[in-house]
Design a protein around this nucleic acid. Structure first.
Length: 423
RNA sequence: GGAGAAAUGGCAGAGUGGUCGAAUGCGGCAGUCUUGAAAACUGUUGAGGGUCACACCUCCGGGGGUUCGAAUCCCUCUUUCUCCGCCA
């Protein structure tokens, strides 16, 4: 959520930058400013009425004390009238505040100036590419065939137990999952991220805190009996650690990592591009998250990007980095880098990580602030990224590391798997 | 799940209808003293709205109510603690 003061002061610039998302925000921005003006006027009227009422109440108290009951009763009538006025102002003010909030919820974050213009993923800008694409043997298979051949993932069994998109990992497949999680967490903690284990269900307030609610509730599984939501990403519980928090400047930066399963309804997706592990309703992911001083957040973003790079180099997977264009940029993000691994048997790139700087957009909604050098409270910057998401990494490993004798395990993982081949 | 108690500023903890945005202690910050530090002393120290700055308004777990007036009384929800029950 953008701050109204920020909107007021940078109106033209914000409209121009939001145009990169292919939206004309002129009306929304103008309305936000106008609503806020109206809000202020109502607040002032209400405050003045209350001030008058408060003064009278005090006077009544004094009159009662000095025994001037008649005079007091006269004033009482006046306050009763003021009460009515107060009520009306309060009602109007609430409506205005709500209207303003609803409007602000609808305005996406302002893209960083280096975000390329564009509509679709085709306009994303490749900023880096590394790793050799392996030459596979003639009978190379896509990962869903490999999963069946080596009996390491059973999609049909998942269908039976739950439904599509809930695979069952078996034997070395299960062990490989566990190995990846442990390996990612180790890499992250070595880099200074503190490991957290967070709840996999969150309440409504947390959903609002990170922006899944009120608009995107269709993406989450909802446990209606207890009014809880299954997390679509660790970002939700991990970021909400900092909801309503006032930090000291010396607390920054904060770096945390955590593994969670992620649950996504993915309503409306279908077809070949969601086959196998490409898109699931339940999957595992290790997330990294930072809370930063505003002056340092872009340096932090670079360091996160480098960190993820290091892991993909370690795994010796061919990958590229994309700077997302305005049309592809997430609602809350100011700048996002996507990592894609090349899946050789499918002959396509698979997104395995998305690293973003949200600047103050999340912090504003979360009320995540720090006390700066002048003793003033300032919003923090938040960033997060996957480090990494498992299924597509697994798909990449299965496909790129397949040989006629079986699937080799990347060297970096062998200490975690305890085997070097899935025969 | 049942019974009881509680929720106040960064923390601890007073406050049962007006003089309370809230005593006191600790912590934080600034200063005095000191070569420096500690101790001691003095001052200062919650958040949001609003203002050029004041004024003013709101906030004592959340929501609602009683009252001219609520941290204080009532209702309700949430959370915590104690006891009982159940249980990996």
């Amino acid at each position: 959520m953008l701050q109204v003061a920020f909107i007021r002061e940078n109106k033209e610039d914000i409209i121009a930058r939001l145009a990169k998302r292919n939206i004309d925000a002129t009306e929304m921005i103008n309305n936000a400013i106008a609503f806020d003006e109206e809000r202020k006027a109502l607040q002032t009227s209400l405050d003045n009425t209350k001030a008058e009422s408060n003064a009278l109440s005090k006077e009544i108290g004094n009159l009662f004390k000095s025994g001037e009951v008649q005079k007091a009763n006269l004033l009482k009538e006046k306050t009763t009238q003021l009460k009515e006025v107060t009520k009306n102002f309060e009602q109007e003010l609430n409506n205005k505040v709500e209207a303003l909030a609803e409007l602000l919820y609808k305005i996406p974050n302002v893209p960083n100036p280096i975000v390329p213009a564009g509509n679709t993923d085709e306009d994303n800008e490749e900023t880096f590419r590394e790793g050799d694409i392996p030459k596979l043997h003639d009978t190379a298979l896509p990962h869903w065939e490999l999963a069946k051949k080596y009996n390491i993932i059973d999609f049909e069994l998942g269908n039976k137990i739950t439904g599509a998109g809930f695979p069952v990992y078996i034997g070395k497949g299960a062990r490989l999952q566990r190995a990846l999680i442990a390996y990612f967490l180790d890499k992250n903690t070595e880099a200074g991220y503190t490991e957290y284990q967070v709840p996999h269900l969150v309440n409504e307030a947390s959903g609002f805190g990170t922006g899944q609610l009120p608009d995107k509730e269709g993406q989450m599984y909802h446990v209606t009996l207890d009014n809880l939501y299954l997390i679509p990403t660790a970002e939700v519980p991990a970021t909400n650690i900092f909801r309503d928090t006032l930090l000291n400047e010396s607390d920054l930066p904060i770096s945390i990592t955590g593994y969670t399963p992620c649950f996504r309804r993915e309503a409306g997706s279908y077809g070949a591009h969601v086959r196998g592990l490409n898109r699931l309703h339940q999957f595992d992911k290790v997330e990294i998250l930072r809370v930063e001083h505003p002056d340092n957040s872009y340096k932090a973003l670079d360091s996160m990007v480098n960190h993820v790079k290091g892991i993909l180099q370690d795994l010796k997977l061919p990958y590229r980095i994309l700077r997302l264009c305005g049309g592809d940029l997430g609602f809350t993000s100011a700048l996002t880098y996507d990592f894609e691994v090349f899946s050789t048997a499918q002959d396509r790139w698979l997104e395995v990580s998305s690293v973003s700087n949200f600047e103050t957009f999340q912090a504003n909604r979360l009320k995540l602030r720090f006390k700066n050098g002048d003793g003033k409270n300032e919003l923090c910057h938040t960033l997060n990224g996957s480090s990494l998401a498992l299924p597509r990494i697994l798909a990449g490993i299965l496909e790129n590391y397949q040989t006629e004798d079986g699937i080799k395990i990347p060297e970096a993982l062998i200490p975690y798997t305890g085997f070097d081949m899935i025969p």
